[in-house]
Amino acid sequence: MATRNILIVENLHHQFGKFKVLSGISLEVPEGRLTALIGPNGAGKTTFYNVISGKYVPTGGKVIFDGIDITGMPAYKIAPLGLMRSFQITNIFLKLSVLENVLVPLALHYGKTFSCLTSLGKEKSLAEKAMVILDQVGLKDRAFRPAFELPYGDKRLVEIAIALARRPKLVLLDEPTAGMNPEETERMILLIRNLSRESGTTFFLTEHDMKVVFSVAQYIFVLHQGELLAEGKPSEIRENKAVKEAYLGGALDA
């Protein structure tokens, strides 16, 4: 059975003023395959995610998600279709509790945004769903703590939990292990692998830590100076000459 492509990007261009950040990227992400986007700093990874997730309107090209053309759609309209993202710099609701952090996307998902006279405390089914998510990422026992009190690694998990809450079809993870110590990184890798296998969500991550990429990704795209340099299985990318040159040899041996 041929797997369906959950994300199709066609000839995507983006530039800030005269500065070209993305020049003609085309790629496809099949449903269920844990895919990674790598590239040296400044290759355009985050811009690529920002364009797909609706932060910027691309200057050219097309983004098709789940059969729908989402090119240039604002983020708040893309998210309900089932495309969520996490951020490289932790971007959570700091003063809210961990549970509330997950309840925010859930309340949106179940159309409770404007219900202003019902009690949130009585939304038992939302709370249950939130607890399932927190259990998945391993934050269940910290559900009632304010998010700002958590150690860095746990805040990164809240970041992931928010992205997962709406049970999206595709999650873009922007450097999920950024700033983590080796132990936290290990935990994050395991989590992403398990989620990818069990949750029915497709994960597409950027990462600059090569160890993480090669241990977790099933398929890799390499971005270099705004263009797609190579794509393939981790073993193929490891041996790819152009990729090695782009990284000046160093990083891939790590």
Binding site: F93, L96, E100, L103, V104, A107, K112, S115, C116, L120
Partner: peptide
């Protein structure tokens, strides 16, 4: 309410 959560 859920809306209050949205505000915060």
């Amino acid at each position: 309410s859920p809306f209050g959560l949205m505000l915060m």
